[in-house]
């Protein structure tokens, strides 16, 4: 095996690609974030910390906090919906398990943009839900359910829920059922067993799932754009605007590194949890 070819030859093409088209571009926008926008939207190579200081102006800070709160809320609901579902799938007979799991993953592999559009059809003023309420006599006139935080929340939840179920499933699947039985035999209630045995033992899955939902929710820009109607801003929209509309790339880059800093802290937290659960 070792004699065949050096691992470096095998790793070479992929690593070279990632260095040129991932590391360089990231370093480039990192460098941009310390420069300034010229009057024509070009980059003026005059070092400054201004872009990072501008992240703390009240408007931007408010969008950051609002996005964090929204992403956290999406993650929390995804956990509430996802945990029982993952638990249910993990306890099905083997032949059902795979089918049920594929049914969870399948929507994730299809176009998120189109699945977001489906919610426009459902929630808009002339949409399915509005008409349904009228025909049931629950409303006299058409109501739009779009263009608010709830619509954005539903859109993000809809897109990223599979990300929560999968890691939870693999954590629950690995649980030894005898531990739970032992807990029952010793007189613990189902409630106690869940919070003191099952949940702590699947904590890794919870943290992984939470990060997989939180991170993309935080950076998403087309769900707030389509379901929030551009009225409700998230960080992704701000970065998008700086790059494609205001053409202030240095400022947009600084915002991107603001997001990256948050992601990095979360990953450190995940590594810490993983190590702690492995030790115990």
């Amino acid at each position: 095996m070792k004699r065949m070819v050096s691992p470096l030859v095998l790793l070479g093409p992929a690593l070279a690609w990632l260095v040129v088209f991932l590391v360089f571009p990231l370093l480039l926008i990192f460098a941009f974030s310390f420069f300034q926008r010229g009057s024509f939207g070009q980059i003026v190579y005059d070092p400054t910390l201004k872009n990072y200081l501008r992240l703390f102006n009240p408007t931007v800070l408010r969008v950051f906090l609002h996005s964090l709160r929204l992403a956290a809320f999406v993650t929390f609901i995804a956990l509430l919906l996802g945990y029982p579902t993952a638990y249910f799938i993990a306890n099905q007979p083997a032949r059902w398990k795979n089918t049920l799991l594929v049914l969870v993953i399948l929507p994730f592999w299809t176009s998120y943009l189109i699945r977001t559009y489906a919610w426009i059809v459902l929630l808009n003023r002339e949409g399915v839900l509005s008409r349904l309420l009228i025909s049931l006599g629950l409303s006299r006139e058409p109501i739009s359910f779009l263009y608010n935080d709830t619509a954005i929340l539903i859109g993000l939840l809809y897109g990223y829920l599979p990300f929560m179920v999968l890691p939870l499933y693999s954590a629950i699947e690995r649980l030894n059922p005898e531990i739970r039985e032992a807990s029952f035999d010793l007189g613990a209630t189902p409630f106690q067993t869940f919070f003191r045995i099952t949940l702590p033992l699947t904590l890794r899955g919870v943290v992984t799932g939470a990060i997989f939902v939180f991170v993309p929710s935080l950076g998403n820009f087309f769900v707030p754009e389509l379901l929030g109607g551009g009225q409700r801003f998230m960080i992704g929209n701000m970065i998008n605007n700086q790059f494609l509309k205001a053409r202030d790339w240095p400022y947009g880059s600084a915002m991107a590194f603001g997001v990256m800093a948050i992601v990095f802290i979360l990953l450190l937290f995940q590594a810490w949890i993983t190590r702690r659960t492995e030790q115990s």
């Binding site: 926008i29 950076g219 998403n220 970065i239 990256m260």
Partner: peptide, 18 residues
């Protein structure tokens, strides 16, 4: 596996800049 965890908007602006 970095590209899987970086928010896609960050990767997008980095590549556009590059």
């Amino acid at each position: 596996f970095l590209p899987m965890i970086i928010p896609d908007i960050v990767l997008a602006i980095a590549l556009l800049s590059f």
